[in-house]
Amino acid sequence: MYAQLVETGSNKLKTLDEMSPEERQFQERINDEIKIEPKNWMPDAYRKTLIRQISQHAHSEIVGMLPEGNWLTRAPTLKRKLQLMAKIQDEAGHGLYLYSAMETLGADRDEEIDKLHDGRAKYSSIFNYPTLNWADMGTIGWLVDGAAIVNQVPLQRTSYGPYARAMIRVCKEESFHQRQGYQILLTMMQEGTDDQKAMVQDSINRFWWPSLMMFGPSDENSPNSAQSMAWKIKRHSNDELRQRFLDQTVPQLELLGCTAPDPDLKYNEETGHYEFGEIDWQEFFDVVKGNGPCNRERIEARRSAIDSGAWVREAAVAYAAKRQRKAA
C-alpha cells in the first residue's frame, strides 16, 4: 500500500450518538456515499489524517521515481528507455495530482515536503530496496505497480472528493505501468539467455516479500484501520487487499515460468485462494523506521534535487517578473 501506518489520532470509534451535531452530519454524509468537498465542514482529525495519508501517498510516487531512474541510462534499447521514461514521468504526475489534492485541505506543499526530508513523513517501504538488475524494472512494474493498483482502485471511491478524483486519474495510467513491466519480464523469459532468465528469478526473489508488505501490517496490528474505514478513506483491510493481490499475481507468476521465494505458497481448493507463508514483519518495521537498504540514499537524493534546483526556481521567478515588466 502506498500509505502505510497512517495515524488517525484515535483508536476508538465514536458512535453517532457520541458525536456533535456537525460530526454526525458529516458521518452521515459519508455513510450515504456523498463526497466531502474542500469547503465542507470536517472534523480536525479527518483533515489531519487525510493530509498525512495523501502526502505519504504523494511522497511515495515521487520517491518511487528513484529506483527506476537508476536504470534509465542503462536500458537495453532506445524503445525500453522511452517507455521507462514515460512511466517515471507518470509517477511524477501522480505525485503532483496528489499534492494538489492535499493542498485543498489547507496543507502547504513545501512544509509537507520538508517533513519528508527530515523524516517526519513516511513513504512506501518498497522504494527503499535497491534496483540491482534490468529485470527489476519489469518486476517493479508488475509487482509494485500491481500492488499499488489493488490498493488504489478502491480509493477511487474514497470519501474525500479531490482525493477520489486524483485516484481516478492515477488508476487510468497505472495499467500501462503494470503491462510494460510484465512484458519486460515475459520477453526476458521467452527470448532471453539462461543468464537473463536467472536475472528475472533473482529479481522476483528480492521483490516478492517487500511487495506483499506494501499492504501494511496484518489486520490485528492495524489500530488505525477502524477509524479510516469509518471515514471511508480506506475501504478494505490490509489483509483483504494483500489476498486479492496474491490471487491475481500467482497465475501471472506461473505464466512467466518463475517461482516465488515462499515454500508455503499453495492454492487452497476449498477457499479458492492462495495461502502464503509468514511475512517478516520485523523487516517491514525496520524499513519503515528508516533502516532499509536505501532509506538514506533516497532522502538524500530528494534533498539534493530540491537544493540544487533552487536556482531554476529563482530564475523562473525572475523571468516571470521580467516578462510582466515588458508587458506593462
Binding site: L96, S100, R169, R313, R323
Partner: peptide, 12 residues
C-alpha cells in the same frame, strides 16, 4: 476542472 498547478506565471 481537472486540478491545479503551481507556476511562476500564467505562461508557465
Amino acid at each position: 476542472h481537472v486540478g491545479s498547478v503551481h507556476a511562476a506565471d500564467r505562461c508557465m
